[in-house]
Simulated assay, not measured.
Amino acid sequence: MATITDIATIAEVSISTVSRVLNYDPSLSVTEETKRKIFEAAEKLNYTKYKNKQKQRELPVDVPKKHNKSIGIVQWRMDDEELEDIYYMSIRLGVEKRAAELGCDLLKISNLDESVIQSVDGLLAIGKFTEERVKKLHELHPNLCVIGSNFPLDDYDSVNTDFTQATELALSHLMGLGHQKIAFIGAEESQNMYGYRRYKTPTVNTYVDMMQHYQLFDEDYFIVKENSRLDVQTGEELTEQALALWQDRLPTAILAANDAFAIGVIHTLTAHGIKIPEDISVMGINDISVSRYVSPPLSSVQAFTEEMGETGLELLYNRIENPGIARRIFLSTQLVIRQSTAKPKEG
């Protein structure tokens, strides 16, 4: 595992600055560019898939090795927005890594200029775009792959993480430790999501389904803000609201909707003198690179974000060379246990 010292060396900043940035310290005053250098260094250093690779990954057998494809990238989270939750930064870095291996030229597209879009061989859209935006992108270019959207598959390719599995792994881990009073703190950007149920994310719905199945669901422990970002600040605010609601009736564990939210949960619990994991265990989802550096290191479920970027680039490359039926790919997840979870305190 890359150390904070390794990150500081690459980003050319102090170890203290790296630690405070990775912990989303709100009292730290540094430029957005410095934050970006630190987050990108952390991501690249922990991109372990490539560390010991003996040879370049081969293309799928049905893809001719024709290089110099031009790929337009449309990002849902742009520039400084990436720093609020580096999940999408990690996907982008995976795209860039695989594009370099395949000899593809990348062009970032901020405005949907028809002439610019039609000048590239394919479009790669990263993030939770609205249904209208996805349809517009597909109208502008037939070769489209969307990474991270949950809208129904039309005649374009898509890649996502199996967040139903991720939530099951997280809850099973907590229940296996003996937790029954498991709260959920999260948010949904509902307008950018598809579904017929009130809540749209697999994470939220799987939490409700599993807790109800085991007769453990408690409405007071279910804290979800609709039409809101999943960032550290919102996690802090919702945890403050939750503590005011719970008073002395605290849960023994909290599952956060993602790691950024979990960091916000940790900030607020710590500010109230609540020890983690002695008093309350905290669990995240995504396992972004900073999760191992927060205090305490965060237990999470790894979403293979870099591989999402790689897979999306490969799907698009394939479509450019061999147009065919649209493909939807879900990548599996993996439980990562660190120091933020433990058995519930007796009594």
Results as ranks from 00 to 15, higher is better:
Ala2Ile: 13
Ala2Leu: 07
Leu22His: 05
Ser27Lys: 14
Thr31Cys: 08
Lys35Thr: 06
Phe39Ile: 04
Ala41Lys: 11
Ala41Gln: 11
Glu43Asp: 12
Tyr47Lys: 08
Tyr50Gly: 11
Lys55Gln: 13
Gln56Glu: 12
Gln56Phe: 04
Arg57Ile: 14
Val63Pro: 04
Lys65Cys: 00
Lys66Ser: 04
Lys69Ile: 13
Ile73Ala: 02
Arg77Asn: 11
Asp85His: 11
Tyr88Phe: 15
Met89Gly: 05
Glu96Cys: 08
Val116His: 04
Val116Ser: 07
Val116Asp: 02
Val120Asn: 04
Lys128His: 14
Phe129Lys: 07
Thr130Gly: 15
Glu131Leu: 06
Glu132Lys: 14
Val134Pro: 13
Pro142Trp: 13
Leu144Phe: 12
Val146Leu: 00
Gly148Cys: 05
Asn150Cys: 14
Phe151Asn: 05
Asp155Gln: 15
Asn160Lys: 00
Ala166Tyr: 00
His179Trp: 08
Gly186Gln: 01
Met193Pro: 09
Tyr194Asn: 10
Thr201Cys: 02
Pro202Arg: 05
Val204Asp: 03
Val208Glu: 04
Met211Ser: 02
Met211Arg: 05
Gln212Asp: 00
His213Thr: 14
Leu216Asp: 01
Phe217Asp: 00
Phe217Lys: 02
Asp220Met: 05
Val224Ala: 01
Arg229Lys: 14
Leu238Gly: 02
Glu240Gln: 13
Gln247Phe: 04
Ala253Met: 08
Ala262Asn: 07
Pro277Asn: 11
Pro277Cys: 12
Val282Ile: 04
Ser299Asn: 11
Gln302Arg: 15
Glu307Tyr: 02
Gly309Ser: 02
